[in-house]
Design a protein around this nucleic acid. Structure first.
Lengths: 328, 328
DNA sequence: GTGAAAGCGCTAACAC
DNA sequence: GTGTTAGCGCTTTCAC
């Protein structure tokens, strides 16, 4: 089998026109109705598909959009990716996916691969600082950040959930229930949220109760278990992501802390299993898919004037994992 | 800013050699030690990165590997994707991701996009039959199927979990607990498993208890709820995936069926939340990441002789969602 | 061991 | 409205 694909030249010959005409017709340029008709027919007959290879080289840039994510295994990023994919699909653009593991170096590698491929538009959940992104900027790559921004990237538009609002609502809810010793269990790149947490809590903040994990499940579990053991006096936790929430539930169970009796828990990111958990988890829902879709939209219409950023609303969904402060 | 990237010609000139020499040096061909040294130095100085665009056109094929998945939102496919990505990363190859939604037509579109890009190697969880894949075959594209095979694809290698064994173990476990009316809640492309289910159950099969959902959560829920309402006499369910398991738990809860007292449940695919569920779910674990990794490996060494397929083991992990048949 | 040159498929500038 | 042609960056003969 293994038939050679028809090229523009084949079509041109078969239709008795020049290659330029074929190119024009296929990209909607001007041509007489009859020529257009003929070219289209022949192209269909030959099952001609313009080669992106030729076009890309000629135009000095690959189409398509790059997508850089910390971890496809995390369902939040899965949903975000889904948003990007549906937007890209609507535009007929391929998506090149790379994962960074929240590691700046790995991110730099992935950026390198994209650059090498001639990709000029990327949606990223950034891990590295401005230095990592410098080669990309220099090449004129258009980036849009999603879910979080990064230090030193003043002019890269970002599509974010309203972390500030989400944190505030969650903290208010918790303090309203009487909680005073509230912990924040964070992951990579959550400076924004922690700042909001500190601000919302005001004088109540206890820096020992603000802990960070790296991106992995293990690290999240270690952080949660360590926190709970070190400070058995805390009565509520805000987990900054579904991996962290999962870890908190696991660690609490392991240490025989009953939720919500001994410990109230709010998790960032509403995942399907939050409802299946015992007790069902109260969460701050983030529109993961929308974030991805909007970011892809932004990067695709790179030509027009782009807003500095987009802020999408979060929502506190109260289920059963928070209760009044224990008498202790 | 927006600096033009250095080309091979720039390097050649700066090093005082011909472009061919630069190309040879960079791809490990023969050159005198001193020439090699000089070229390498200059290339580094100029921060030269060979353009994949030029290479691809010249070689009439894009590097990289295509990845076609039903749904990135499903954590099983997320893990599978992760496996593919780590293998691809090790090889320095980009991955082009597309989702099919378990729809043959959408799959055909995605294949079209890949072909247009000149991608010649793809890992896919196939949805369509041989007809959908015909254009791909004709172009000489190398495919490896993952997680499931498809009808009429005799010679496409596939990396599969041992569904047959997994189903048998699960069914044996259930019948050993005394269950007789066991349902199978299936998803798209699970013909293999259902066949194994029928075989394992032998005379006990009740065709009314074998139901299928499409890929979505809604559809899964509808199928589960419908099944439970129509046949309140069933005492055990085998759910063919984590979405289906999730739906089964939800539907059972909605209909006040207690797990495992009224209903025993086994879910295909071990997901982190299976442990957090109340009760913790007994599952048939599948090595999702390995499946992806192995498939990617196979497609990358397309040159050598490739085995017809790989079968990876599954494992029954007993937790708390199965009990003896209710007295009823 | 090295360089010159052809050419991959396409688009855009230019001539008619 | 249409054809001719140059050339994008690279690899790969083919001479030397």
């Amino acid at each position: 089998m293994n038939m050679r694909r028809a090229t523009i030249k084949d079509v041109a010959e078969a239709a008795g026109v020049g290659v330029a005409t074929v190119s024009r017709v296929l990209s909607g340029g001007s041509a007489s109705p009859e020529t257009r008709e003929r070219v289209l027919t022949v192209a269909a007959q030959l099952d001609y598909r313009p080669s992106a290879l030729g076009r890309n080289l000629r135009q000095q840039r690959a189409g398509g959009i790059g997508l850089l994510l910390p971890d496809v295994t995390d369902s939040f990023y899965g949903r975000l990716a889904d948003g990007v994919l549906s937007c890209a699909r609507a535009a007929g653009e391929p998506v090149i996916l790379g994962t960074t593991g929240d590691d700046a170096e790995r991110e730099a590698d992935q950026i390198g691969i994209l650059l090498e491929q001639g990709v000029e538009r990327v949606v990223a959940v950034p891990s590295g600082d401005a230095e990592v992104w410098a080669p990309a900027r220099r090449t004129g790559l258009t980036a849009v950040f999603a879910h979080r921004s990064a230090p030193g990237h003043g002019d890269v538009p970002a599509v974010l959930a309203d972390d500030r609002g989400g944190v505030r609502t969650a903290v208010d809810y918790l303090t309203g229930l009487g909680h005073r010793r509230i912990a924040y269990l964070g992951g990579p790149g959550q400076e924004q949220r922690v700042a909001a947490f500190r601000q919302a809590l005001g004088a109540l903040v206890d820096e020992e109760l603000v802990v960070f994990a790296r991106g992995s499940r293990d690290s999240a579990y270690a952080a949660a278990a360590g926190l709970f053991q070190r400070r058995p006096d805390l009565t509520a936790v805000l987990a900054g992501g579904n991996l962290l929430g999962e870890a908190a539930v696991l660690a609490a169970r392991e240490l025989d802390l009953r939720v919500p009796k001994d410990l109230s828990l709010i998790m960032f990111d509403d995942v399907p299993w939050a409802e299946l958990c015992a007790p069902p988890l109260t969460v701050v829902a983030q529109p993961a898919e929308d974030i991805g879709y909007r970011a892809a939209e932004l990067v695709l219409r790179a030509g027009g004037r782009r807003p500095r950023g987009v802020l999408l609303p979060t929502e506190l969904i109260v289920r059963g994992s928070c209760g009044p402060r224990r008498a202790s």
